[in-house]
Design a protein around this nucleic acid. Structure first.
Lengths: 134, 134
DNA sequence: CTGTATCCCCGAAGATACTG
DNA sequence: CAGTATCTTCGGGGATACAG
């Protein structure tokens, strides 16, 4: 959703061009909330829509819905409806989504080490870097 | 650059919030061309600006420049100027960028297997999936 | 509760022209 | 050759209102 990558990958695939494996993977969790959603579902079990809303305090209604829809389309999560007077909808990580976790773990580890390194290097000021990016 | 993630990560860091390691890593190669640039620099050695332009046939002048600038700011690549009558500028992957390659390799492998699986599953039509995304 | 429909904003991506 | 400056376009993200 966030993502120019996502779109261009889809176009490539539609044209039968499968030479974009890295970008394809990248497109899986591009989107401002997808990684957080994925990790929450993985580590803390299935959640209902509003439970996720509470877990992600800053996400808007519509955006959460669209992120979940895309994650479903990519088959990374499963959506289950428990019937009843007021049906309950549960989102859970799927086997495919689960298989993506090692990649996310690798990202976590790299980011962890990198941030650590940046904080002890006085010559690289993180706030300055943020400034530069404007 | 592409990225809502990049921006929100920078804001978090500026506020002293370092609890976004995965997103931080994600922000490294979010941007439509960054992974391709990184891999090219890694596997096929330093390149000059115009050489990169030729390698990425669809990228525009300005966008390539901005992607390279951000990669520099993130210290993933090094920019070297060889002085002379007409100075030559070379872009090469940095040690930090090099350390990111295992993560990218993991993404490559996952994407490869996933795409393979999708192509043999007739029940999941990739073009259809692309349609759904509209 | 779990969404969809609408409208707005902003920044990334692109095209083009200009510069040292 | 290696960029910067400017303008336009397009789509993601957000807020809000409405619906089943």
């Amino acid at each position: 959703m966030t993502d120019a990558v996502r779109k261009s990958v889809q176009e490539k695939l539609a044209q039968g061009d499968f030479s974009c494996t890295k970008e394809f993977t990248l497109a899986m969790f591009s989107g401002k909330w997808k990684i957080v959603i994925l990790c929450n579902l993985y580590y803390h079990g299935p959640f209902r829509f509003n439970e996720l809303m509470r877990l992600l305090p800053r996400v808007s209604h519509k955006v959460l819905a669209s992120q979940l829809r895309e994650l479903q389309e990519d088959q990374l999560i499963d959506r289950t409806t428990v019937p009843g007077a007021q049906p309950e909808v549960y989102y859970a990580i799927s086997p495919v989504g689960r298989s993506l976790m090692p990649v996310i773990d690798a990202m976590h580890e790299w980011g962890d080490q990198r941030l650590r390194a940046l904080r002890v290097q006085p010559q690289f000021n993180i706030n300055q870097a943020a400034e530069n990016h404007r």
